[in-house]
């Protein structure tokens, strides 16, 4: 499985890292970096990066008929699928850590800082589940059918971001401190449990994706 991860990690280096560098530059250049809008950008950037990462990888496989090539080698479908899931997990963990480090420079109110600490990992877990669903879709329907879904999800994420910032946030702002206060006081045991549940769901999604890929053989 290692050669597969190594092959796909080139995409990680050529895709995720430049975006991360771009974000750092943006943070330095943007004078209003302390604006909560910037935090929202970072949240949704994680979703879009996950979708983009999977989409680019699958587009390459589809263009080169990579899966057909790999199937002629001594490698199982399970290894092919697992390598994709594992690398995506590494990518999401990397982005979560990267975001937390980047946002630690954020000079916000204590409430804003609490929000960041809570929502960045939550976003990471959501990205992971989204990735699992997208992979299952790709292995079930093929990338050529799924790429429209990728676009729809990307636009959907952007639309949700704009709506959240422009419409929802002003409306819930009065009650926001109480909500954040409640969420950020959730016990660490429950938080770790939530991470465990998400990772287990991701594992189950991977197993399902393997089954789907094997079943998709004509």
């Amino acid at each position: 499985m290692w050669p597969l991860i190594k092959k796909n990690s080139i995409l990680f280096i050529s895709y995720v890292l430049p975006f991360s560098v771009f974000l750092i530059l943006y943070w330095f250049i943007e004078s209003k970096a302390n604006d909560p809008h910037f935090v929202m950008v970072i949240y949704f950037w994680m979703w879009i990066l996950t979708i983009g990462f999977i989409s680019s990888g699958e587009q390459q496989e589809a263009k080169n008929k990579g899966y057909e090539f790999l199937q002629t080698l001594p490698v199982t479908d399970a290894e092919i699928v697992a390598s994709k899931f594992l690398l995506t997990l590494v990518m999401v963990v990397f982005i979560v850590c990267f975001d937390l480090v980047l946002l630690s420079f954020f000079k916000g109110t204590p409430l804003q800082l609490k929000t960041i600490l809570f929502f960045v990992p939550v976003n990471g877990m959501a990205s992971l589940l989204l990735a699992g669903l997208l992979f299952i879709g790709v292995f079930k329907f093929g990338f050529s059918r799924m790429h429209k879904v990728f676009w729809a999800v990307t636009f959907g994420a952007v639309a949700v971001m704009i709506l959240t910032v422009e419409l929802l946030l002003p409306k819930i702002r009065p009650g926001l401190p109480a909500i954040i206060d409640f969420l950020t006081h959730i016990s660490w045991i429950f938080r770790l449990l939530a991470v465990g549940v998400v990772l287990y769901c991701y594992y189950l999604m991977m197993k399902l994706a393997i089954k789907v890929k094997i079943a998709a053989k004509e």
């Binding site: 008929k65 990579g66 080698l73 490698v75």
Partner: peptide, 27 residues
Amino acid sequence: GYVGEEQYFYQNKTVAWTGRFVSQFFK
């Protein structure tokens, strides 16, 4: 050893890369 009707390789990779990549799977 398998040779198909269509040759599937990663098109943007070099011959040397292809050899190195494939070599990792065979004992």
